[in-house]
Design a protein around this nucleic acid. Sequence first.
DNA 1: TTATTTTGTTAGCCTTCACTAACTATCTAA
DNA 2: TTAGATAGTTAGTGAAGGCTAACAAAATAA
Lengths: 218, 218
Amino acid sequence: MHSLTEENYLKALLLLSAETGAVSVNELSKRLGTKMPTVNGMVKRLAEKKLVRYESYQPLQLTEKGKKEAGLILRKHRLTEMYLVQQMGFGWEEVHDIAEQIEHVQSPRFFEKMDELLGYPTLDPHGSPIPDQNGRMEWRQYRHLSTCTAGEIVTLTGVTTSGDEFLRFLNSRELRLGLKLKIKSVESFDGSMVVSYEKHPNETLSTVVCERLLVDPA
Amino acid sequence: MHSLTEENYLKALLLLSAETGAVSVNELSKRLGTKMPTVNGMVKRLAEKKLVRYESYQPLQLTEKGKKEAGLILRKHRLTEMYLVQQMGFGWEEVHDIAEQIEHVQSPRFFEKMDELLGYPTLDPHGSPIPDQNGRMEWRQYRHLSTCTAGEIVTLTGVTTSGDEFLRFLNSRELRLGLKLKIKSVESFDGSMVVSYEKHPNETLSTVVCERLLVDPA
DNA sequence: TTATTTTGTTAGCCTTCACTAACTATCTAA
DNA sequence: TTAGATAGTTAGTGAAGGCTAACAAAATAA
Ligand SMILES: [Mn+2]
Ligand SMILES: [Mn+2]
Ligand SMILES: [Mn+2]
Ligand SMILES: [Mn+2]
């Protein structure tokens, strides 16, 4: 259907358009690690295929068709990540790069099988929603740990980065999804937090870390 | 390392060179479904990379390096097929096309995990040997069912085609690897055979079928 | 041995997806 | 309101991997 490259563009557009729905060529270029003129050319091709709305000097927007295609690729990505963790025993820090490749496999049966073996999961190992068979998902209404205040007790429900260094850091502190965190204090000068959970009565988390952790009220 | 296309060329060369070790551009072209001039150009590139020995109008040969690379790709292909059948519940007729894609995934961990979960298998679901971590395998010393004579009892140990129509035909007759077949008669005029096994006391198999079935003495 | 068929090669062209250099439009800050 | 910075675009180039047309070499048949 679409090339591997086109699929990566569509997925990046979907993820970047989370809030406003509009994406600049510049953002897309940075996200993909591809120079702007290349991206410019490609989005024009995607526009010809009615996947993207493009007008000179205007922000990019996925069409309905584009959103669906992108959603279906994201579905394959996140199902794969879940499969690798649940069925194959990978750590959550190892699976993104593999899923980045397997998401392009052309075989509906393969992903249906994964879905079935996993019991039709709705979240991936990083707490992100898995789009349905129509490529649609409800975007989580985030709450970043960094917005919480001392005394609150929250559940860790997601991370905003699937980069392996960050996830390895979390592993090293035994931080994982589902944990209840008690916020003991917030340092006003740098926004860092001291939290307690399980065998960690006094763990300090920097702002950078807190901004990447998503929580729900416990 | 190498592109997906190069990998497919190497694998095709390895499989075609089974007997003689030498492959014509023409054979390779037919196997890949790619026109001869394209193949000609590509094998020259593979020769520059020291993966193939090429001289004008001479048969092609994989170098040691080429054999190893090809063997490692074939390993990934066959491990994947085995994984899909054993761990995901696919039929042996469904897995070749998926493995054709997954064999190109760049992630040693991924295939090590498969290997481990499968208990280090040595044969794929079609009875073909899985190359080791060095890309080497012992080629099976074939015996085709078509070479057997009336009265013999043999074990079905492999098929030479992983095309899905043929495998579906075998499914329809409940023929699968490991079965003991008794050869009741061989028709001299067309080479077709009547065999018995399990609940099938009188199954007639055409020459075309018999030539594609590999057996060992029971 | 010669004619014909098959196989292999060269030349030239095309699409996809990258890049750099150079230019233009828009935004921001003085 | 204008200068400079940032973002977007166009033009030109290149590698990878396809193709067809035309021709050359080798193998096969007559
Ligand atoms: Mn991911
Ligand atoms: Mn990808
Ligand atoms: Mn196969
Ligand atoms: Mn392949």
